[in-house]
């Protein structure tokens, strides 16, 4: 076996070794940020939240898991509690969600979301929700790794 071939094979082995590391790191990154990466990519397609106000009232919300898959749909008829507690209407299978995490309710004809003192906070279009905040179709509410999308 000529030394040249051995050197090439050695380099191939090393490259393959790093290829493995790269693939493994990618699997890890997808696990950690999978939901968020997809969320960011999906952003440009959505209408701007500020302008969305005029496009009518929201009528339902869609729950998406960390991988962006649709879990369930809820009609906006009354107050909706989000959390892992048994009395909640939306109960995400997500360890980053608190027992009583957030609430979507109707205040004087306008739908608002508010945080219920959750551990990890509630985010409306990447902004932390500090008090009752109005929502409109196209908005994305994030609790833990779960996203609740507001639809018309």
């Amino acid at each position: 076996m000529p030394p040249f071939v051995l050197t090439v094979l050695k380099i191939v082995l090393l490259l393959l070794l790093y290829f493995f590391v790269w693939r493994a790191v990618r699997a890890v990154v997808l696990d950690l940020y999978g939901g968020r990466v997809r969320e960011r990519r999906a952003r440009p397609a959505e209408p701007r939240p500020k302008r969305g106000r005029s496009r009518g009232a929201p009528s339902k919300v869609v729950v998406l898991n960390a991988d962006g898959g649709r879990v369930s749909t809820h009609r906006l008829t009354g107050t909706i509690q989000i959390g892992r507690g048994t009395n909640c209407d939306i109960r995400p299978d997500d360890t980053y969600v608190s027992q009583m995490h957030a609430r979507i309710s109707n205040r004087n004809g306008a739908w608002v979301v508010e945080d219920l003192g959750s551990t990890n906070g509630t985010y409306l279009n990447q902004r932390k929700v500090t008090g009752p905040t109005g929502i409109s179709p196209g908005d994305r509410i994030r609790v833990g790794k779960t996203v609740v999308e507001v639809r018309r």
Binding site: L16, L17, R23, A24
Partner: peptide, 9 residues
């Protein structure tokens, strides 16, 4: 997929 790569290596 990772396992196949590992075995190959």
């Amino acid at each position: 997929a990772l396992l196949i790569l590992a075995i190959l290596l």
